[in-house]
Write a protein that binds this DNA or RNA. Structure first.
Lengths: 335, 335
DNA sequence: GACGTTTCTGTTAACGCTAACAAAAATTGG
DNA sequence: CCAATTTTTGTTAGCGTTAACAGAAACGTC
């Protein structure tokens, strides 16, 4: 395609120096005379020169790009995470290349990672919330900086994760504190670690209160499945409090309860997870748990960068605590 | 960082051929003996060789990467678009590099584009829904394949866009057909083309029916602003039908109406735009307009690829028609 | 079997940059 | 003012790939 822009030698010629000096100016090398630096900068500006990342990547063996592997970036959680990662990476001078994936199975993940590797990305962030993803990761080249987000807590891979257990415990405790006798749970898909953690936290809170957890009702994150679970819950008169694994499930539950004439929070209290921006405008406004996606992004990127710089692939671990956001969907049970 | 993987010459040595033959096998060049091809493939597999995209990009002047510039990829529309683009691009063997941007002003956009250019992306897709973005685009190098999505219809730049006007007209007409005397509108921010188009379509439908459009109420896409507008609408007894510029605005309106005891659809009908997955679980299920993001992504990518291949920067234009999705939030007005 | 074609394979030279070293210029100290 | 040092600049050699051309095999044809 048409005119290749000017190269370093063109800048050098215009500034009356060698291309190496231009390179030094570009990379902030200290030993360049101020006057020379200015002349080079002027030449760069005049020609509209842009360094060629490919050439740089070739010679240094590493591009200023971070690869992200994620599934379904339409969901609120992954989308927020991706956006936050991109922002943080940009601040550090890194671009973000997305390799989204339809299914989080071995092959898809490996393929996405391969694509990133062949572009010589500096490091890879895998948003790997399901079991099958973890396996794919263990057979990756060991020399590629890697961080997983919301991945398997039991794998020896650097991991940043929202503290699902603590969040779920807080949500459940909040309902117990309001006076409810027990709390039901609409869960996410059982192969997501997020789901498992949230089930776990809910169960812990109940057990700690000396209660026997009722069977969790399995959903799939969607409002549709929340609606189906809600239809069952609505018909069970003993249910007064429900914790759903995310806000969209809660939305479905809310509608089912509404249809069955069970009022929220008067008859049943509901707590969600994620704090999607719309949660405050559900009917009624939803009490929920807000994970700090920015913090997760920052932590993962920092972890990745330290690997990139040091070259060591330490198996670190960092957990971000979420916060409960109280709104109107919780009230004491009526007696 | 550790071991650089094997290079083409290593494969060549193992297979007993020249590196150029390896290159030919990799690029599907026809004139290679079947037997040689197999030997090379075997060597590639044995060594776990991965072609170096940077080297390829350097010599061809173009990487297999498409840059996407977008704002706020957390919103449903942009997120869906991004995901669809990534899918489509992957099918064509392209990676997608995201340069999201806090504000869609000149400088941010230019900066994001610069970043992409310095990585020698093959082309750029700008999701540029606001006025200020357009200006930045006109001063870009002319030789970079570029497509804008949801951008300014009046600029000489290749553009793919959802037919906002037709969608809004359909939504409004749907309400008029149900028997409503007029239709109110809660709009998006006035600097978004999406908003302008939707206002336009709404207005057209009313004018075509011989009606005088009431003043549109300005929102900002958020449920919060929908809620504020809804509080006003709820107090106006003459209002029986509302078209909101997106589903989240509709959610806010629904809640305000609910609080004021105005029932939907019995007292007031509401139609949204976007068909977010949750819309079917609002109270009541929301009638809305569904843009086909996959189609938009396919069209933009195809347009971009044809520019990349041909080298010509034709100012094409393509419009994707959205579809009305009827649910329960619309009913005839009570007399 | 010699000759022109076609098909396949190898050789060489970039692409634009950084790293490593070499040379020149500026600075210092006596 | 000369030598020793430090700072600044230039030269050369790759990084791993593709493009362009050159050379070698294989295949017909007479």
């Amino acid at each position: 395609m048409a005119v290749h822009g000017p190269a370093m030698t063109d800048v050098a010629r215009l500034a009356g120096v060698s291309h190496q000096t231009v390179s030094r100016v570009l990379n902030g090398h200290p030993n360049v005379r101020e006057q020379t630096r200015l002349r080079v900068r002027a030449a760069i500006a005049e020609l509209g020169y842009r360094p060629n990342g490919a050439a740089r990547a070739l010679v240094t063996g590493r591009s200023q790009v971070i690869g992200v592997v994620a599934q379904n970036t339409t969901l609120y959680g992954p989308a927020s995470l991706l956006a936050a990662l991109e922002q943080t990476a940009a601040e550090e001078g890194f671009a973000v290349s997305v390799g989204s994936v339809r299914n989080l199975d071995h092959r898809s993940i490996s393929a996405a990672v391969e694509r990133h590797l062949s572009h010589r990305v500096a490091g890879i962030v895998v948003i790997a919330p399901v079991e099958s993803a973890g396996e794919a990761l263990e057979r990756l080249p060991k020399d590629v900086p890697l961080v997983t987000v919301d991945g398997d807590p039991n794998r020896p891979v650097p991991l940043v994760t929202v503290d699902q257990v603590a969040g779920a415990r807080a949500a459940t405790q909040h309902l117990l504190d309001a006076g409810h006798r027990t709390v039901w749970h609409v869960s996410g898909p059982s192969d997501w670690f997020d789901s498992v953690g949230r089930i776990d936290g809910w169960r812990q809170a109940l057990l700690a209160a000396g209660l026997v957890p009722p069977p969790p009702m399995p959903g799939d994150w969607s409002a549709a499945s929340g609606y189906r679970c809600g239809q069952m819950l609505a018909r069970m008169p003993e249910v007064t409090a429900v914790f759903t694994a995310n806000d969209h499930l809660a939305l479905g539950v809310l509608r089912a309860l509404h249809e069955f004439g069970r009022r929220v929070p008067d008859d049943i209290s509901v707590v969600g997870f994620d704090d999607v921006p719309e949660a405050a405008y559900f009917i009624p406004p939803l009490t929920t748990v807000r994970p700090d996606f920015d913090a997760v992004a920052r932590a993962s990127l920092q972890m990745l960068l330290s690997q990139i710089e040091s070259g060591t692939g330490g198996a670190l671990r960092q957990t971000i605590a979420p916060a409960l956001v109280a709104r109107e969907s919780v009230a004491p049970p009526r007696r």
